[in-house]
Computed example of a mutant assay.
Amino acid sequence: MTDLLYSEAEDDLRAAVRALLTDRNDPAEVAARAEEGTPYDAGLWKLLAADMGVAGLLVPEELGGQGASHREAAVVLEELGRAVAPVPFLTSCVVATSVLLACDTGSPEVAGLLGDLASGRRTAALATGFAAGPDDPGPLAADGTPAGPRGTVSAVADAATADVLLVPTAQGLYAVERAGDGVRVEPRIPLDLTRPLAAVTFDGAAGTLLAGPRQAAAAVRQGLLAGAGLLASEQLGLAEWCLEETVRHTKERHQFNRPVGSFQALKHRMAQLWLEVVSARGAARNAADALATGSEEAPLAVAVAQAYCAGVAVHAAEECVQLHGGIGMTWEHPAHLYLKRAKADSIAFGTAGAHREAVGRAVGLNAPE
């Protein structure tokens, strides 16, 4: 039977990541950097990726990584979700790394890039739209040539800070230097300012072909599947913070000489939210475990997790804003960061509706035409 409880090693990893984020990721500073258009914290990323070693969790030891699994990566994402930390762990260490691991790791180009990502020396981003899901990767770059890809891909998450872009085309998967000639990255204004989006145009960009068309398509799907599955853990962490912060606030906030949290209507709302968060934890842990074990049920587990956790995160963030009253609506309070991250995450790697359709197909209940 699958054990979804956290192991001692996972608890230790959580404690270390949470301690670092508590010390180095002040929500007020995150909001200020986001407003200035520079949310990415290179110092925090170095501490997480290189010094703590979380960048290489999914990379085997023989390729320079930690040889851990999606379960450990999920724990890190729970903590990053709790802190709405502006670091590229999901896009680089989960999605891009999973794409590369699904390619030929015996290739010097693939192995070298995986080693760089695992060490934290470089980051990578998959050049697909942030809304692309495992069953719908969206439009690819217009063309692939022996020299590299051509075309434009919009709404690529963390493209502006990535060192390498993994570009799927009809001719295969290319690795392209983000700062190289023939690459133009145009930042877009996202709802979630802590995870920047950009349109990326390739025009005569020099690239290295990593995989042919068939292998590239399978690798991209595996990367997006891992991204969708572990995004549920980020949504879980976000929802947990919102619930805990709301309970804390309603215990301290008094009206009519009583804590507002003692009012029955608010008790019911928070109790309902607690039930949703507990259920989300089960769904997210199941998806992470299915990915970690390579289960045949992984696509179904991921679809269930995203179909459920996306809505829970949004609901938790909305309740956090509302039950904080007027202060929850202000820029100074971090509640708005969580609401925007939750809303943006709800369409990342496929909408909840798309994942419900995937669940239906998996059990033979196709949606009507």
Rank of each mutant, 00 (worst) to 15 (best):
R221N: 08
A28M: 10
Q235S: 09
T2C: 01
A9S: 12
L224K: 02
T194Q: 11
Q171C: 10
L80M: 03
A206H: 11
R178K: 11
F256D: 15
A217P: 08
L126A: 02
S92V: 12
A32D: 14
V167N: 08
L210I: 11
S279F: 14
G112F: 01
L236D: 10
R285A: 05
P137G: 00
A9P: 02
L191R: 13
T201S: 14
H268N: 13
G229M: 04
W241T: 15
G261S: 08
E62N: 14
A301P: 02
A287F: 01
V278W: 09
A354K: 06
H315I: 04
R178Y: 09
A50I: 13
L90I: 09
D135L: 10
H336I: 12
A344G: 14
R18F: 08
G133V: 03
R285N: 06
L230C: 11
S98R: 09
G227Q: 03
V183K: 03
V110G: 03
W274F: 13
A199C: 02
R14D: 09
F202K: 06
R82A: 04
R281D: 08
H324R: 05
L20P: 01
V247G: 10
A73L: 08
G237Y: 05
R184K: 14
G180Q: 06
Y308S: 09
V76N: 04
